[in-house]
Every structure is written in C-alpha cells, then in structure tokens.
Amino acid sequence: MTILKTTGVTKQFGGLVALSDVNVEVNENEIVGIIGPNGSGKSTFTNVVAGVYLPTSGKIEFCGQDITQKTTHEKCHAGISRTFQLMRPLIGLNMIQNIMVGAMFGKGHSLKEARKRSAELCKFLDLENVERPISAMTALEIKKMEIARALATEPKLLFLDEVMAGLNKDETMEMINTVRKIHSRGMTIVIIEHVMRVIRELTQRVVVLEWGKVLCEGTYEKVSCDQRVITAYLGEEAEC
C-alpha cells in the first residue's frame, strides 16, 4: 500500500528551482533510498515532505490524506518524523528528556508515560546512562538519540537524513544494524545517503535526484548500472 505520494512537487527559492516536478511514491514497510549529488534536492525534498518548507506547487498525500499545506507539527502528528543532516540535539535537556519531547508532543503522552516509553526506546537502541547531558555523549549516541526522538513520536514514516555522515566504519555498521532493527518493527523508512554501501545493504528501492528532478528510480542493482546515474553521481569507477 502506498503511504506517501508526491505529485509534481516543486520548490523554488526565489529564482532557484530546488525541486521540480518530483513524483515519488513510498510503500508501506519499505526502505527507500534517495541519492544524488550535493545540491540535487535531497534535503529539500525531506524538508518539503516533513514540513519545514511548503512546496511552491504540487501535492503531497500521506495515508490517503492531503497534507500539502500542513505545518511542521501537524505533519508530525499525522505520522511523519525525521532526523536532521547535521546533529540537532536540544542542549538544554539531557538524553532521555530529548526523547521525551517527541513522545509528549508528537504523540500526546503524559510526562510519566513519555518517560516510560523513552526509556524503552533507549533500551531498544542500546542507549545507556540516559540521564547524561548532551555534552557527555558521543556523536553516535547523539545520532541514535535523535532517531529515538523521531521514533518517540510513533511515526508511520521515518526520514533519515544522512545518519551515517561523520561516523567511522564500525559505527556505520552499528547504525546499519540499528536501521534494520527499526525496519523490522514494521517502520517505513526513507533514507538519504551518500554512502553507497549503506544504500546497497538497506534499501529495496532507490530514487536518484539530480538538479531537483528525479533522474531515475529502481532497485540498487538497476540504478547503479544506469549510465545517467554513473555520469551524474557515481562516477566511472563505480562497480555494478
């Protein structure tokens, strides 16, 4: 079943067309990868769908509901959640309190219930010592905490915007396993990534963006051998 459908989504910043006529569908319980060179509109797409920007034109449907004009928090309540390309912890709160924000305001849980659910999420994502301030956490922990904060809103669709950026090889492996674990709980995930290994390991379908347009779409194997994708993004050296 299709849960997210964008039809002709266009986003302009003044004269700059960041997204032009983007049609993407995401099916339930799928992991979709979005790849493309820098500036191709990957993050803008996330921002338009998850609500930070309103699209200039086009239509976004989520679970059969038109959410095009909804504000950020309304989209969160509808069931779309996301993490950010650059880490954005709430530094005035500690680890579990960060996650509680999602549980309380995304899902409307009481303080007590939010704490309980956040503690469960910490356990699920192997986050320990949950009362630590942000300053005492590693980059991997902060990234996981941000995923937990997004999951705490109990979304139907999760956007992961370059979660692997800045992680070393071992940490990347751990993060791949984490994403698998989240997916195995029945989550639908859209993952934006530059690391092709991550895309190969995780996704069932890949959308390639270039200059704000969908260049092509298909399985990893199909996309990575597509001559246009090789020219625009992967480079000649890439192996099929």
Binding site: V52, H73, L90, G106
Partner: peptide, 24 residues
C-alpha cells in the same frame, strides 16, 4: 510539567521542536 519541555525545545531549536510535534 510539559511546559518545561516545550519551552526548552523552542528556545534551543524551533525546527526540532516543531518536527517533534510541539505546537510552538
């Protein structure tokens, strides 16, 4: 109460707050 969490998240990062469902 939850007002503390709303206030702090709004002060720290409004985009994160809104994305986490806070009606700023």
């Amino acid at each position: 109460t939850r007002i503390h969490y709303a206030s702090t998240s709004i002060r720290n990062d409004e985009i994160v707050a809104a994305s986490s469902g806070v009606n700023i």
